[in-house]
Amino acid sequence: MSDLAKKKIEVSGLSVSYGGVTALDSISLDVYEHEILSIIGPANAGKTTFLNCINRMIDSIPDARVQGTVKIDGDDVRQVRDVNALRRRIGMVFPLPVGLPMSIYDNVAYAPRMAGKTDKTRLDELVERCLRQSALFDEVKDRMGDLGTKLSGGQQQRLTIARALSMEPEILCLDEFSIAVDPVTTMRIEEVLKELRKEVTIVLVTNLVQQAKRLADRTALFLDGKLIELDSNEIIFSRRTADQRTFQYVQGLFG
């Protein structure tokens, strides 16, 4: 990414501890507008914690202590008055899909409705578009009234992606979305993500190194709460990594 690209998310000196145990250790990095930044790293590296700081879901963990700043479009997320408005700008996809206990349609229409958008025809359009974007529409178009919780794991994951898109977010964060999804669907969603980056900025946490390589513009390696290296994919997936551990991790030598 060139220096001319706009910084969408600026993270500086971000540290998080849970009841005194450090999970993130002064992370500083920027995410540029319309890029796909992927974050890789072994279990407990702090990847999920990092995402939770972006949309302030970390607030709901009582013993979490956060230091440092996360800025979106230059505004510190900790200073925003309406945290719900902030969350509507950020789509989130969890590793294990949680279909809300309501119909498929209502799942996707939930966030817009909660934000006060209730126009039926607009909602119909929106729901269809989000379900198409998440490659689920054809499978569910005849049973939009069925319960979201009764879909298969992979379908529920795509439902949560559709839900995350329903607020037309500026930022989309995905946390190991392919855990519950078969390879074919994974590839379809990856195509969707490539399409989406024209409109949104994507932070993709993944434990599939090849997925980071396929999709991302840049990749960051987290290890034990620290940012080890962040660079363009060209560098990260080559022998020219700045840190030896990056090369080893990408090669599958540890983790």
Binding site: N55, L86, Y110, M114, T160, A164
Partner: peptide
């Protein structure tokens, strides 16, 4: 609890 988290993440308030 996962339902609550999913809902908050979507920008719904506590009361909603």
């Amino acid at each position: 609890v996962a339902f609550r988290h999913a809902s908050w993440t979507l920008g719904a308030s506590r009361w909603q």
